[in-house]
């Protein structure tokens, strides 16, 4: 149980990163590749927030009732992840628009059939 409680979040985020990397490397379909990038982004965000966590910590928000900063989790990774999520969706939309243009031009999304991209 102590193994679970100290490592399960790391296991989750690194599994997401590795699965996303596998999809990016292996799958030939462009939209599938973008799905892999999305999975990797979620894993990295989860990792950053996990690093900032403290045992039995409280959320970094003060209220009238709770005004002492002891035991508060680290607010900096949360702020970074907050902006990273919004950037992620914008970049994702840009990548998908490129995929749409590729489909218009070549009539397929399969990277093996697009001659200019074959390896």
């Amino acid at each position: 149980m102590s193994f679970l409680s100290s490592y399960i979040h790391y296991i989750g985020c690194f599994s997401l990163i590795l699965i996303g990397l596998y999809v990016v490397l292996v799958k030939p379909n462009l939209i599938k590749v973008i799905i892999g990038i999305n999975l990797m982004g979620t894993g990295v965000n989860l990792f950053l927030v996990t690093v900032g966590y403290i045992h039995a910590g409280t959320a970094p928000i003060f209220s009238e009732a709770a005004q002492q900063p002891e035991g508060m989790v680290d607010p900096v990774p949360q702020a970074l992840v907050l902006t990273a999520i919004v950037i992620g969706v914008a970049v994702l939309a840009l990548a998908l628009s490129l995929a749409i243009r590729v489909y218009d031009h070549y009539g397929t999304l399969d990277l093996r059939k697009i001659k200019a991209l074959r390896w």
């Binding site: 979620t42 927030v49 900032g52 959320a59 989790v73 907050l82 999520i85 919004v86 994702l92 939309a93």
Partner: peptide
């Protein structure tokens, strides 16, 4: 993990808008 701001952003953007953009 005590990050309610990030949870709101992920729920509205990651689970909502991203899916819609993919489906479009």
């Amino acid at each position: 993990l005590q990050a309610p701001d990030v949870a709101m952003a992920e729920a509205s953007i990651g689970a909502g808008l991203t899916t819609a953009i993919f489906i479009f």
